[in-house]
């Protein structure tokens, strides 16, 4: 009988763990489908932490190229000002107003946008 290689075993374990992750709870460092598990950049405040009704200025966006471009195309880049309209429950997205249009940003991505709150 052919023994499974160490790599295969690790893959199976990963798959098994991720299948039951809903039960055992998310584990740090484990790859989860669709989730954005990169650690948040060490900044004072992320867009994720801002509350609805606040005005913020974007300081920095540390995310993948596609996401950064998508945000920039919608007017969200370093230096732009946003008005936070709503934060959805259940870890849902954040609704912000940017240059006259409303944009929904997933929470995972919002974590990678560092902002400062404007008075």
């Amino acid at each position: 009988m052919v023994m499974a290689t160490k790599l295969q075993q690790a893959q199976w374990r990963l798959m098994f763990n991720s299948l039951f992750a809903f039960w055992t709870g998310p584990r740090q460092g484990k790859l989860r489908g669709g989730a954005h598990k990169r650690p948040a950049p060490p900044t004072a405040l992320s867009l994720y932490q801002a509350a609805s009704g606040q005005q913020v200025e974007v300081l920095q966006i540390i995310a993948g190229q596609t996401a950064t471009r998508q945000l920039a195309q919608l007017g969200i880049r370093a230096g732009s000002r946003l008005a936070i309209q709503r934060c959805a429950p259940l870890g849902g997205p954040i609704l912000v107003e940017s240059a006259g249009s409303t944009v929904a940003i997933g929470r995972g991505l919002a974590r990678k946008v560092s902002v400062k709150i404007l008075p």
Partner: peptide, 21 residues
Amino acid sequence: GWVLARMWPEISPGMVLEVPR
């Protein structure tokens, strides 16, 4: 969706969607 997402775990770029008037 839950099963398929787990068969193919991958970090997908987050949602960025313009919400029209």
